[in-house]
């Protein structure tokens, strides 16, 4: 199964995401921001980084990249899309996901090993986890504070669309400890934490992040 990883100018974790896909048993395919084609992939990862330097609002320029027009269109028709960190910001800016990511409440960039609770295992990217499972995955962001209007939050909660929540401490001030959400269909997931940095014992705090990538592979096979 082929999973595309988009490189924008300023993407940083694109190579890491490709490695994670490989470790999970998938075939990573490099996609280029300026190229509207998805090269026949079965799913797409928008990786972490600072697309276009994030000098404007994070992700605000990347959403206009030619590749995103195709991603937005295909996501609407069920293509599994995972946005990690900057990728989550791009998904919000693209209106594939509601809400926004703002400056961390404490105003600092923060990198730490973070405990998370998986709350929705019905998405394309989390089906391999157990409901309520606690995992440890790195967070690293300066603008990861998730915000949304109260009615949007209530709807997300009511529809079970909070996919992962921060457990044991909120690293950035996100409302209701929200670390990741999905669209109503469950094929588009945005996360602030970085599962691609938790796929090898040697280089990550755990291998708990692997489940996101194996989930989508399993979903595609079945």
């Amino acid at each position: 199964m082929k999973i595309g990883v988009v490189t924008f100018p300023g993407s940083l974790d694109d190579r890491d995401a490709r490695r994670a896909i490989r470790v999970a048993g998938g075939e990573p395919v490099a996609l280029w921001h300026g190229d509207a084609t998805l090269r026949g992939v079965d799913a797409v990862v928008l990786p972490g980084g600072f697309s276009y330097g994030d000098y404007l609002r994070c992700g605000a320029i990347a959403r206009f990249a030619p590749v995103m027009q195709t991603v937005i269109d295909r996501a609407g028709r069920g293509l599994p899309v995972l946005g990690i960190c900057n990728g989550f910001q791009i998904l919000c800016e693209s209106h594939l996901l509601p809400g926004a990511l703002t400056r961390n409440a404490h105003l600092h960039f923060r990198n730490r090993d973070q405990r998370l609770r998986v709350e929705n295992t019905a998405t394309s990217w989390t089906s391999g986890y157990r409901q309520g499972e606690e995992i440890v995955v790195p967070v690293k962001n300066g603008e990861g504070c998730f915000v949304a209007a109260p009615d949007v939050l209530d709807r997300l909660e009511g529809e079970g669309r909070v996919v992962v929540r921060y457990a044991d401490g909120n690293p950035n001030g996100s409302v209701r400890d929200i670390a990741g959400i999905c669209n109503d269909r469950g094929n588009v997931v945005g996360l602030m934490p970085h599962p691609e940095h938790a796929v090898e014992k040697l280089t990550g705090p755990s291998i708990d992040g692997l489940g996101f990538f194996t989930s989508v592979l399993t979903a595609a096979v079945s």
Binding site: D16, R19, F109, R110, N111, R112, H194, E196, H197, E200
Partner: peptide
């Protein structure tokens, strides 16, 4: 913790 130590995925 204000520095990214994970990026590139080779930090042992």
């Amino acid at each position: 913790e204000q520095y990214d130590r994970y990026v590139q995925g080779n930090t042992v």
